[in-house]
Simulated scan of single mutants.
Amino acid sequence: MQKVPSEMSAGIKVAPDTVRIERHLPGPVERLWAYLTESEKRRQWLAAGEMELFAGGRVELRFRHHELSHEQMPDRYRDAASGEPMYGEIIACDPPRLLTFSWPGDNGRSEVTFELTPEGEDVCLVVTHRRLPDMEGMISVASGWEAHLGILEDRLSGRQPRGFWSTHKQLKEEYAKQFAAG
């Protein structure tokens, strides 16, 4: 299994129900914004689906993890392989700097915010996921975001995407230790 660099598990628990992850990615900011908001670009690292980019607009996410990397999907996740749409709602949108929406995966109980700040040729991307139900949810969300963001970084850098499932598994172990200690 590929070793995940320790700096990849850089997410932190900033509140009892909130995880924050910061990544520096190849820019420019408009390119990264397109990978967050355009279905065909977003499907390469997270999930396809249309977004209505205004407060109150609909977010559609169709997860197809089997398309993200060369690895086979573990059996325990096969029930989520259908790519059935999940829907959320845009809470805030300020292109190309800020996007917040209710998270479709938990019927909108939590919300995710993407903040983009240009830094020379790169972009600082901060992902904050709030209103998570418990420690298990925080571990799952942090490791999921890190695995997805790693694939986004690979795509933006023109590299072969790393293995999603092996990365996710290792990150879950790292976050379980990190959050238990913190």
Score class of each variant (00 low, 15 high):
residue 6 S to C: 06
residue 7 E to D: 15
residue 14 V to M: 05
residue 14 V to W: 02
residue 16 P to C: 00
residue 18 T to D: 05
residue 19 V to T: 04
residue 19 V to Q: 03
residue 20 R to N: 09
residue 20 R to L: 10
residue 21 I to R: 06
residue 21 I to K: 04
residue 22 E to Q: 11
residue 24 H to T: 14
residue 25 L to M: 07
residue 26 P to M: 01
residue 27 G to P: 11
residue 30 E to M: 01
residue 31 R to C: 03
residue 34 A to T: 00
residue 37 T to G: 05
residue 38 E to W: 08
residue 40 E to Q: 12
residue 41 K to N: 04
residue 43 R to G: 03
residue 47 A to P: 09
residue 49 G to V: 00
residue 49 G to E: 05
residue 50 E to T: 11
residue 53 L to Y: 03
residue 54 F to K: 10
residue 60 E to N: 13
residue 61 L to M: 13
residue 62 R to Y: 06
residue 64 R to E: 09
residue 64 R to D: 02
residue 64 R to Q: 11
residue 68 L to P: 06
residue 70 H to T: 14
residue 71 E to L: 03
residue 72 Q to P: 15
residue 73 M to F: 00
residue 75 D to Q: 14
residue 75 D to G: 13
residue 75 D to F: 06
residue 76 R to E: 13
residue 77 Y to W: 15
residue 78 R to D: 01
residue 81 A to T: 10
residue 83 G to D: 08
residue 85 P to T: 04
residue 88 G to I: 02
residue 89 E to Q: 15
residue 91 I to R: 15
residue 92 A to E: 15
residue 94 D to A: 11
residue 94 D to V: 07
residue 96 P to Q: 04
residue 98 L to P: 10
residue 100 T to E: 08
residue 100 T to K: 06
residue 100 T to H: 03
residue 103 W to R: 03
residue 104 P to D: 13
residue 105 G to T: 06
residue 106 D to Y: 08
residue 109 R to P: 00
residue 112 V to F: 12
residue 112 V to A: 13
residue 113 T to R: 12
residue 113 T to E: 09
residue 121 E to R: 15
residue 121 E to H: 14
residue 122 D to T: 08
residue 123 V to H: 10
residue 124 C to G: 05
residue 124 C to M: 11
residue 127 V to Q: 10
residue 130 R to Q: 15
residue 130 R to C: 14
residue 131 R to A: 12
residue 132 L to Y: 05
residue 136 E to P: 00
residue 138 M to A: 05
residue 139 I to K: 01
residue 141 V to R: 14
residue 142 A to C: 09
residue 142 A to K: 06
residue 143 S to R: 02
residue 144 G to A: 04
residue 150 G to F: 00
residue 151 I to D: 08
